[in-house]
Amino acid sequence: MAAFLGLFRRDLSLALRQGGDTGLVLGFFVLAVVLFPFGVGPEPELLRRIGAGIVWVAALLAALLSLDRLFEADYQDGELDLLVLSNLPLELAVLAKCAAHWVATGLPLALISPLLALLVDLDPASIARLFASILIGTPALSLVGSVAAALSLGARRRSVVLSLLVLPLYIPPLIFGAGAVEASEIGDGARAYLLVLGAISLAALALCPWASAAALRQALD
């Protein structure tokens, strides 16, 4: 447990320090959302309709951006070899890294999303649902992303391969996350969407550490 927390704290402080991942990811998130009104026009009607989708897609891309560094630095400087040899099971080590990644990127994305929702003119109820859906959905993004990040270690043109692997796997969270915000108008459909989203995150929590650990082991073989 101490090793787990130690790894978690180390990764978190690395991500949060000056010039770390969190700042970059948030900056990318805000800029990506701000680009859309220029692209589709500033009509509030239109923005309100597609706003949830915009914020969700931007969050996906921001999460994707940060995956590049999830294992890469540790792989380069040999720390990953030590993790494999340490008595902390590799699955738990992956979990610690994913948890740190989520606290450093997913959580800030969720926290800042209400602000961006104001930019696309969502009403307060939708903003609450958007916040909830991003909060529930981002753990799945970190966990699924860790599998792809582990698989692509050492590949040629790694970031392209990584996005090709990750984006299709991000489609289900995107469907249910953006759906939760839009479903609200028809009864309490939003609750069902959020529950499915939670199920996706829990399934990812149960399966992805094993897959990532297997991928890391074969990367270091």
Binding site: L151, S152, V161
Partner: peptide
């Protein structure tokens, strides 16, 4: 992914996962 590695067996194993 399978074709992204200089070592073909490495690509095969990553692809398998």
């Amino acid at each position: 992914l399978v074709n992204a590695f200089d070592d073909p067996s490495r690509g095969g194993r990553a692809g398998a996962v």
